[in-house]
Computed example of a mutant assay.
Amino acid sequence: MSYSIGRVQWEKAAPLLKNVREKVFICEWRMPKKIVFDNKDRHAVHLLVCDDVTQEPIGTGRLLATGEISRIAVLKAYRKENVDHIIMHGLLAIAKELNLNEVFIYSPLENIDYFRKFNFISAGAVFMEAGMPRQKMQCSINAIKSAKYYLSH
């Protein structure tokens, strides 16, 4: 399978981004809509991954100017295809491009080992969000493992 990943603006791609996030976070994970969508979307850098054959959106993620990585969502049918890795590497490449010193994510506890593969380390206490225990994970830009992906604009 092949995929296209692109940096998109919320104003132009909101319906596509919302579609993926609603299917994953609201329908599948049963998260409240007010948590899934917030005012930060308008100011974030968003990535959208589409299946090259169907042209359908299958994954997304965002990066805030603060260095926060969030809203990484991949449709269930594509989770074994490493689409999440494509999104993470794309967001980390953008963080380097923006000359951020550090990036962080509020990870569900079951995903901590996943983010450690990208050189993230635990920071702070575990907390609850939307009924889910989370841990802040952070990574210095200098510690980021690079991968070769090409982002379209």
Rank of each mutant, 00 (worst) to 15 (best):
P57I: 09
V103I: 11
D84S: 14
V36S: 02
Q55T: 12
E97P: 01
E102F: 02
H85V: 01
M128N: 11
R30H: 15
L48D: 03
Q135K: 11
A65C: 06
G59C: 04
T54E: 07
E102R: 15
K40N: 10
Y114F: 15
I141R: 04
S152T: 14
K40A: 13
E102C: 09
N39V: 02
A95V: 10
Y114T: 10
I26A: 03
C50P: 08
F104E: 01
M1W: 10
E110K: 12
L151N: 04
C139N: 01
A143N: 09
L47C: 03
M31L: 12
N39Q: 11
N119D: 12
L16S: 07
Y78S: 01
K33W: 06
E110V: 11
D113Y: 05
Y149T: 04
R21T: 07
V126L: 02
R134Q: 15
C139S: 00
M1L: 08
S122K: 12
P57A: 06
G61R: 09
I5V: 15
R42H: 14
T60H: 06
N111Q: 13
G131P: 07
E97I: 06
K80T: 11
C139P: 03
S140H: 00
I35G: 00
S152C: 13
D52V: 02
C27W: 13
G131E: 08
G6L: 12
I112V: 15
K148G: 06
R42M: 08
S4K: 11
P108L: 09
F37E: 00
V49R: 09
S122Y: 00
F104R: 01
V74F: 02
K12M: 05
I5N: 07
V24K: 07
S152P: 00
F25E: 02
V8Y: 03
A95H: 00
K96M: 11
H89A: 06
V74R: 08
E81V: 04
L151T: 10
I87S: 02
V49H: 03
E110D: 15
F104P: 05
H89F: 07
S146D: 15
Q9F: 09
I144D: 00
L63H: 08
F37L: 06
K136N: 04
F127D: 08
R71I: 04
F118M: 13
D52W: 09
W10V: 02
T66D: 09
K145R: 12
K12I: 11
K33Q: 13
E56K: 13
H153Q: 12
A65T: 14
V45N: 00
I5C: 11
I112Q: 11
E56A: 11
I58E: 03
P57M: 07
H85Y: 13
P108Q: 15
A13Q: 07
A143D: 08
M31H: 05
N101K: 10
N101Y: 02
G131N: 08
N82A: 14
E11Q: 14
Q135A: 02
S140M: 00
A73S: 05
K12A: 11
